[in-house]
Simulated assay, not measured.
Amino acid sequence: MRSLGALTVAAGFLFLATGVGAEPAVAPGYRLDTLSMPGAAFSGLSRDGEDLLVTDLASGRLYRRGADGRLVAFGPIFPHGRDVIGDPTGPYRVARAGDVLVVAQGWTPVDSDEGALDHALLALDRAGKVGVISRDFWNPFDFIVADGIYYVIDSARNSVERLQADGRKDTILTFRRMGEAGALRNLSPTEFAEGENYEVDAVPTGIGLREGRLFIALFGGFPFLAGTGKIVSIPRAGGVPIPRLDVEGLNAPVSIAVNGDGDMLVLEHGTFDQQDGFRKGSGRLLRLDNMTGHRTVILDGLTRPVSVLVWDERRFVVSELDGNLHFLTREAAP
C-alpha cells in the first residue's frame, strides 16, 4: 500500500480521504470515505452478515467486502455489456435470501445472443451453482424479499411483480405513462407545440418497504425531465393496489432505503442534458423525515449513482457507475 497525499492506493483500489476538498460534498455532521475501482460500474448493494455485497456491471462479477476493507470477486461471471441506449446491463442487484444469494440479472446486451440467465431472478448457492428462480421478466432492476416473497421491479414493463416461493408470479401493478405538459416545449420547440401534453414511461426503479407499504421510485422516461420523478406507495398485502403519491419533484430517483427511524433515503440519479447525458455531479442523496416529510441533502455532487444501502443506524453506502463506493457515517454528537 502506498499513500499519495489524500489518496491511498492498494491492490488496484483508490481510497479517498475526507476533508480534502474532494467531491462529492457531504452534509455537516457526516463523514465521507470513498473507495474507487477504476473501470468498474458498481450497481447493487446489500448486507450479508458483516460483509458488504456489491455488483459490478462492467465485469459481470459479484464482490464481497469484509472486515479488511478489500473487495474480493466471487461466483461466476454473469452476462454483461451495454443495453440499447448504451448503459451497462448485467447483475443489477444481489441480496441474501436464506441459503442462497439472489441476483437480479438485466436484459440481454445488444451485442450478445439471449442466454439462459438473461432478464431473470437467479439463485447462487454456496457451491457457486446458479439456478433460475424465474425468467418471466423483461428488465428486473430491483427487488426486496419479505416473508419469503420477492417483490420485483420490472423497469421495462413499468410494473411491480410478486413472486411466491413456489414460483407463482403475478403483476401487482403496472404504471400508466406519465403526462408532462409544457416542459418538452422548452427542449424542442420545433417538435412540441405550446400547451400540449406529452407522456413518458413511468420507469419504476428502486423499491423499499415501510409500515406495510411498498414504496416505488418512478424514474421517468426520456428525456428525463428535471423535477418529474416521483415516489408512490401501495399496500404490500390486501387492499386495492391504487398507488398513493408520496413524494414528487425529484430528479430521476433510482434507489430507496429506510433507516431505523423510519426516514426514507432517496437517491437521485441526477439531471439530464440531451447533448451530454446525465450531468456530472448532479446526483444526490436525500433524507426525507418520516414525520414532517422535510428533505435534507446529505450527499451531493454524485455522478450517476445507482444504489443506497442503510448499513446500520449511523452508516450508509452509495454506489456509482463510475466505480465509486461512498461510505457515509453520521458522527456522534459531542
Rank of each mutant, 00 (worst) to 15 (best):
G75I: 11
I85M: 11
G262S: 05
Q274H: 06
A156E: 14
S159K: 08
G262P: 02
I216P: 00
G148I: 05
R126H: 10
D142A: 14
N324G: 08
S159L: 04
V258T: 12
I216E: 02
E194I: 09
A27T: 02
G260S: 10
R185N: 13
V9Q: 12
G90P: 04
P243G: 14
L299Q: 01
S59C: 04
R64H: 07
P76M: 12
G208W: 08
V20C: 03
V317F: 03
R157Y: 01
F224W: 09
L71H: 01
R185E: 11
D166S: 13
D113V: 10
F222H: 13
G39Y: 05
A120F: 03
S188D: 15
F222Y: 15
L124K: 01
Q105P: 00
V130I: 10
G29Y: 09
S155I: 08
R279M: 09
P76A: 14
M1L: 09
V247Q: 11
P24D: 05
R96H: 10
I216T: 04
F137V: 08
K280A: 15
L45R: 09
E196C: 10
E196V: 13
V130P: 00
D300M: 02
D166L: 11
W311M: 14
D322Y: 02
L35C: 02
G208S: 15
R31W: 03
S233Y: 09
G12S: 04
N186F: 08
T34M: 08
A226Y: 00
G90S: 08
R168E: 12
V318R: 07
E114Y: 01
D276S: 14
W107S: 14
V318Y: 02
D68W: 07
A73I: 04
L184G: 08
L16N: 01
M37A: 15
H326S: 04
D51P: 03
H119F: 04
E320R: 04
F327A: 08
L288Y: 06
E196D: 13
L328T: 02
